[in-house]
């Protein structure tokens, strides 16, 4: 048996340990990506949701109500869904994205002097996913049924968005 080269073996083992430690340090210092990506995702969610609300609140032509005001004043949550879902869930490859949302309407009740909420659209359960809240002001000329209290008034539309 050749008994030379033990020092080289030890050196090799030491180098291997050093490389493993370096790799560990590199990976653990790069894992700061996780909280950062949460913020970026939330920012994108917020901008997407708000853009879609602005589109919905823009009337098709002068003198008509926007789709958003229309859905609220007619008390038709399904109209809201039919307009809002394509705006946020359409992908370029033809499949659907998995964003869920709920929508509430807030108005000022002068009789009780407080803010009142109408849970307008609430189809999916929210299980504390990472969510973004977007808002939009809307003018309601005359509501019906649940929104009958809204006559010639300004309401705040709040949408909670999350990825399922």
């Amino acid at each position: 048996m050749n008994d030379s080269g033990q020092l080289y073996t030890i050196e090799g083992v030491a180098a291997a340990i050093m490389m493993v430690i370096t790799a560990y340090l590199v990976i653990s210092s790069a894992s700061i990506f996780t909280p950062q990506e949460k913020h970026v995702a939330q920012m994108q969610l917020e901008q997407l949701g708000h853009d879609a609300l602005v589109v919905m609140d823009t009337p098709r032509e002068n003198g008509v109500q926007s789709n958003l005001s229309d859905a609220i004043s007619s008390d038709k949550p399904e109209w809201f869904k039919a307009n809002y879902s394509p705006l946020i869930n359409t992908r370029t490859d033809g499949t659907q994205d998995t964003l869920n949302y709920s929508m509430s309407v807030f108005y000022w009740d002068s009789d009780t002097d407080s803010t009142k909420e109408i849970e307008f659209f609430n189809e999916w359960d929210y299980h504390r996913e990472n969510a973004a809240k977007v808002t939009q002001w809307a003018y309601i000329e005359s509501g019906t049924d649940r929104t009958a209290v809204l006559q010639d008034t300004i309401v705040l539309v709040e949408v909670l968005l999350w990825r399922d």
Partner: peptide, 24 residues
């Protein structure tokens, strides 16, 4: 060199975080 590059990567992650935080 790999160690220094790792520092740069970590730095860029912090920049992305603060940017999106201020946007929010």
């Amino acid at each position: 060199a790999i160690f220094l590059l790792a520092l740069v990567v970590a730095e860029s992650a912090i920049v992305g975080k603060t940017t999106s935080e201020s946007v929010l």
